[in-house]
Amino acid sequence: RELEAFAERFKQRRIKLGVTQADVGSALANLKIPGVGSLSQSTICRFESLTLSHNNMIALKPILQAWLEEAEGAQREKMNKP
């Protein structure tokens, strides 16, 4: 249940930020998480549509959570600048 809720929230917030699935995939490489490079657009799509295996969903959740927090933080900074 929690994974499904996160996937839905992730998709809504990604769209609100105006970021494509492909952008998310390539931006993950910038997070410098050990062992994590970029991901394909189709992987992000399959995460959002819950068609990845349960284990893959569990593995990707903290990575996508980290990206989302960073992206939303950058958005807030941009909006707070005069």
Rank of each mutant, 00 (worst) to 15 (best):
R1P: 05
R1H: 03
R1M: 12
R1Q: 03
E2V: 03
E2Q: 06
E2W: 02
E2C: 04
L3R: 01
L3P: 03
L3W: 03
A5C: 06
A5H: 08
F6Q: 01
F6L: 03
F6R: 00
F6C: 02
A7K: 02
A7Q: 01
A7M: 03
A7N: 02
A7T: 06
E8I: 04
E8V: 13
R9A: 15
R9F: 05
F10L: 02
F10H: 00
F10S: 00
K11A: 10
Q12M: 10
R13V: 08
R14Y: 00
R14S: 00
I15H: 08
I15G: 04
K16Q: 13
K16G: 12
K16F: 06
K16C: 12
L17A: 03
L17H: 02
L17T: 01
L17Q: 01
G18T: 00
T20C: 12
T20E: 07
Q21N: 02
Q21G: 04
Q21A: 09
Q21Y: 08
A22M: 04
A22P: 15
D23N: 08
D23Q: 13
V24A: 04
V24I: 10
V24D: 01
V24W: 01
G25Q: 12
G25Y: 09
G25H: 15
G25I: 09
S26M: 09
L28T: 04
L28I: 11
L28Q: 01
N30R: 08
N30S: 15
L31I: 10
K32A: 12
K32M: 13
K32F: 14
P34I: 05
P34G: 08
P34V: 06
P34R: 07
G35E: 09
G35K: 12
V36K: 06
V36H: 02
V36I: 13
V36Q: 04
V36A: 09
G37H: 09
G37W: 03
G37D: 08
S38T: 10
S38Y: 02
L39Q: 03
L39P: 10
L39G: 04
Q41P: 15
S42F: 05
T43F: 02
I44C: 00
I44N: 02
I44W: 01
C45S: 15
R46L: 05
R46D: 13
R46C: 07
R46S: 11
F47V: 01
E48W: 01
E48M: 00
S49Q: 14
T51Q: 14
T51S: 13
L52S: 02
S53G: 10
S53P: 13
H54W: 11
H54L: 14
N55G: 14
N55H: 09
N55V: 09
M57S: 04
I58F: 08
I58S: 11
I58D: 06
I58M: 10
I58L: 10
L60W: 02
L60M: 05
K61W: 08
K61C: 11
P62N: 04
P62K: 04
P62F: 02
L64G: 01
L64V: 03
L64R: 01
Q65K: 09
Q65D: 13
A66H: 12
W67P: 01
W67Q: 01
L68Q: 02
L68G: 01
L68K: 01
E69A: 11
E69Y: 05
A71E: 09
A71L: 05
A71Y: 03
A71T: 15
E72D: 04
E72F: 01
G73R: 09
G73N: 12
G73I: 15
A74L: 12
Q75M: 10
R76S: 13
R76I: 10
R76G: 12
E77T: 08
K78A: 15
K78E: 14
K78G: 10
M79F: 13
N80W: 08
N80F: 09
N80T: 12
P82H: 03
P82K: 09
